[in-house]
C-alpha cells in the first residue's frame, strides 16, 4: 500500500473520530463551566445513549439517526432527576463531595444497565453504503455520525450565544452574585445547564454507537470518561469550542503518530500512540496551564 493512502486513511479516520470525541466532551465541559463540577460518571451517561440507539434500532427498527431526539430527551430527564435530589446539594460542598456524588451516579447507571440488559457486548448492523474517499474505504454511517456531531455542536452554540437562557447561563458563569441581584434564578440555571449537559452527553453516546456500532456494554463508560477528561483539559475546561478542537486534535494525533512510530523496531506503534497522546497533554499543559482555550 502506498504511503499516501496510509496517511489519507489515518487522517480521515482520525479526524472523524476526533469530531465524536469533541462532542462527547462538550457536555462535560458545559457542566464544569457552569456548575464547577467534574462529572466522574460522564462515560456512564454516554453508555445510556449508546444503549438507547441500540434498543430503538433492535426492537423497533428505528433509524439510528432518529434515536437522537430520544437520547436528548432521556438525557435531559436524567439530568433533572439527578440534579434536584443530589447535585444541587453538593454544588457548594467541597470539590470532593461532587466527585463522590458523580462517581456514585455513574456506578448506579452502570449497575442498573447491567441488571436490565446484562453485561453482554452488543452491537447492531445498520446497512448503509460503504464509500471510497481518496482510495480509502469507509462506512457512510461514520460520516453521518460526524455530521450529526457538528449539528449538535451548532445547536449547543445557538443555545449558548443566541438565546436568553444562554445569556443567563453566561451571566451566572461570570458572576453568580451579580446574576442573583439582577433577578436570575441561579438554581434554575444550574438545573437547566446540568440537564442540557447530560442531554448532550447522552446524545454523544448515541453518536458513538452510530460511529462504532459494536462493543456496547455497561462498562464501556470508564475509558470514555478518561478520554473526555483529557480532551476537556487540553481544550481548556469550560470552553466548548476548545473541547471540540482538542477532540479533533486528539483523534488526529493518535492516528498520525502511528505512521511515525511504525518505523521503530521492537515497539508496538498503536499502543505507543496512547503514550504519545498523553505526553502531548502534558506538554500542552506545561505551555498553557489552562489548556489551549482556557481563561
Amino acid at each position: 500500500m502506498p504511503f499516501a493512502d496510509l496517511v489519507v486513511g489515518t487522517l480521515l479516520y482520525g479526524a472523524l473520530l476526533g469530531v465524536i470525541y469533541g462532542i462527547a466532551t462538550a457536555g462535560l465541559s458545559l457542566i464544569f463551566g457552569v456548575l464547577k463540577i467534574v462529572n466522574v460518571g460522564h462515560g456512564a451517561f454516554m453508555m445510556i445513549g449508546a444503549y438507547t440507539t441500540y434498543w430503538f434500532f433492535t426492537l423497533y427498527g428505528l433509524n439510528p439517526v432518529l434515536s437522537l431526539p430520544f437520547s436528548l430527551a432521556i438525557g435531559a430527564l436524567l439530568g433533572l432527576a439527578f440534579y434536584y435530589p443530589v447535585v444541587r446539594r453538593v454544588i457548594d460542598a467541597p470539590e470532593m463531595a461532587s466527585l463522590l456524588a458523580t462517581f456514585a451516579m455513574g456506578l448506579l447507571l452502570q449497575e442498573a444497565a447491567r441488571m436490565a440488559w446484562t453485561s453482554d457486548y452488543r452491537g447492531f448492523s445498520w446497512e448503509v453504503a460503504r464509500l471510497e474517499i481518496g482510495g480509502v474505504s469507509i462506512y457512510a454511517s461514520k460520516l453521518i455520525a460526524a455530521g450529526l456531531a457538528l449539528l449538535l455542536l451548532l445547536f449547543h452554540y445557538v443555545v449558548f450565544y443566541r438565546t436568553k437562557l444562554g445569556l443567563a447561563i453566561r451571566a451566572v458563569v461570570q458572576d453568580r452574585e451579580g446574576a442573583l441581584v439582577v433577578g436570575i434564578n441561579v438554581d434554575r440555571i444550574y438545573a437547566l445547564s446540568f440537564s442540557i449537559g447530560i442531554a448532550i452527553t447522552v446524545a454523544s453516546g448515541s453518536l458513538l454507537a452510530i460511529y462504532n456500532p459494536v462493543g456496547i456494554n455497561p462498562y464501556m463508560g470508564a475509558i470514555l470518561t478518561l478520554k473526555a477528561f483529557v480532551i476537556a483539559v487540553m481544550g481548556g475546561l469550560g470552553s466548548i469550542g476548545g473541547a471540540f478542537i482538542a477532540g479533533v486534535l486528539f483523534g488526529l494525533f493518535e492516528n498520525v503518530s502511528y505512521v511515525v512510530l511504525t518505523g521503530i523496531e521492537g515497539v508496538q506503534p498503536l499502543v505507543l500512540t496512547r503514550f504519545i497522546a498523553f505526553t502531548l497533554l502534558l506538554v500542552i499543559l506545561l505551555v498553557r496551564p489552562k489548556g489551549l482555550f482556557g481563561r
Binding site: 500500500m1 493512502d5 496510509l6 486513511g9 489515518t10 479516520y13 482520525g14 473520530l17 462504532n212 470508564a222 475509558i223 483523534g251 493518535e254 492516528n255 502511528y258 505512521v259 511504525t262 508496538q268 506503534p269 498503536l270 499502543v271 500512540t273 496512547r274
Partner: peptide, 20 residues
C-alpha cells in the same frame, strides 16, 4: 505481527499497514 491497546476505538492505522 503487531498489537493494539485495550479499549481501542479505531484500528484504521494498524489495519492499513496489515493490508499492505
Amino acid at each position: 505481527y503487531k498489537s493494539y491497546p485495550a479499549d481501542v476505538s479505531d484500528l484504521t492505522p494498524i489495519l492499513q499497514e496489515l493490508a499492505a
